[in-house]
């Protein structure tokens, strides 16, 4: 049954973001702020980088603010952090990505001014931007979100996030469904999904953790992974991608959102997150961790699978 989701706080959040952005820009605390602004289509939003106090009024927060802005601090946009201390508007899920990036020496906390957003959820990737946020239109990741107030930020608007009761956990349900299948059935499922892949690498481009300057999958000496968009190459790419993100992925689901072929990429990430939690009690969180689950160990780790 479709149930509405209360997004009434978003207006107050927008106002608070604008006020804070204006203040820190005019006081010179930051040189730029990465946030969301209204885009051309009705109700839509897009990322924006502002550096003038007057532009603060452009900032918004709506259910259409789906992007994880953390990606604008690494990779192609590396020059932005170099200009000085940067403000960034973050939802809880995005903040986890930032914490991960700090743990991997890609960002420093002291170079960031975190504007946390109390978030009741954003729209799913296939939903029109001016749609009302409901239990049907909400992004699947938001159905599993427990941290709607990002902690340890420099500024968080003082509003209470309404509690959404009883949203069905979409990934957990889908993972459970797939786990119940036979290996052959799972293979058939993923073969179908991966064969849709056109190797556009949008998933790689949008992922804050795919910050390698040269991707393993682009290398040809040796060619570890076939680069062509043939089924075999696609399969290898998606496995390598999931493995490289295991223990690092913060669950922003941007890969899945940007996939033009609607491959359920975040399912793989969530599955790995679930396994790492069960195996090593690791979960992506807000705290900067010195070591991830796959570059640390204990002498008591599970080895029931080893003969």
């Amino acid at each position: 049954m479709t149930q509405p989701i209360d997004t009434s706080i978003y207006a107050a959040v927008t106002a608070a973001i604008q006020g804070e952005a204006k203040r820190i820009l005019s006081e010179g605390q930051v040189t730029a702020i990465v946030g969301y602004a209204a885009a051309r289509r009705k109700g839509s939003a897009q990322p924006i980088v502002i550096s003038q106090p007057d532009d603060a009024q452009k900032l918004i927060f709506t259910p259409a603010c789906v992007n994880n802005l953390a990606v604008y601090l690494t990779k192609a946009k590396k020059e932005i952090p170099k200009t000085g201390k940067i403000g960034i508007v973050v939802k809880g899920c995005d903040l986890k990505a930032l914490a991960g990036l700090m743990g991997e020496s890609q960002l420093k906390r002291e170079n960031l001014y975190l504007i946390g957003v109390p978030c009741a959820g954003v729209l799913g990737s296939t939903i029109q931007p001016d749609t009302e946020l409901t239990s049907d239109s909400i992004a699947p990741k938001c159905t599993e979100c427990n941290e709607r107030m990002p902690p340890e930020c420099d500024f968080v608007p003082a509003v209470q996030v309404p509690v959404n009761q009883g949203l069905e956990k979409k990934y957990a349900a889908e993972i459970a469904r797939l786990e119940a299948l036979t290996p052959q059935e799972r293979w058939a499922y993923w073969k179908e999904q991966f064969s849709k892949c056109i190797k556009c690498y949008a998933c790689r481009q949008v992922c804050p953790f795919c910050f390698c300057e040269q991707c393993l999958c682009d290398r040809n000496k040796p060619q570890m992974v076939e680069t062509t968009p043939r089924p075999a190459g696609n399969f290898a790419w998606h496995i390598v991608r999931a493995m490289h993100l295991a223990g690092r992925c913060a669950g922003c689901a941007e890969c899945e959102r940007v996939c033009p072929m609607d491959i359920p990429l975040n399912l793989l990430n969530r599955k790995m997150a679930k396994e790492l939690k069960e195996l090593f009690e690791h979960e992506a969180g807000f705290e900067v961790q010195e070591k991830g689950p796959l570059n640390s160990f204990t002498d008591k780790d599970d080895q029931s699978f080893i003969k």
Binding site: L178, E179, P183, Q184, E185, R186, W187, A188, Y189, W190, K191, F235, H238, I239, A242, M243, A246, G247, L268, K271, M272, E275, L276, L279, F280, P293, L294, N295, S296, F297, T298, D299, D301, D302, Q303, F305, I306
Partner: peptide
């Protein structure tokens, strides 16, 4: 081998999930 143990504990779960018979 401790690092390998963790790495492969995770990797085999991934292969299993995409349908490789472990």
């Amino acid at each position: 081998n401790f690092h390998a143990r963790r790495r492969f504990a995770a990797f085999r779960k991934l292969l299993e999930f995409v349908g490789v018979d472990l």
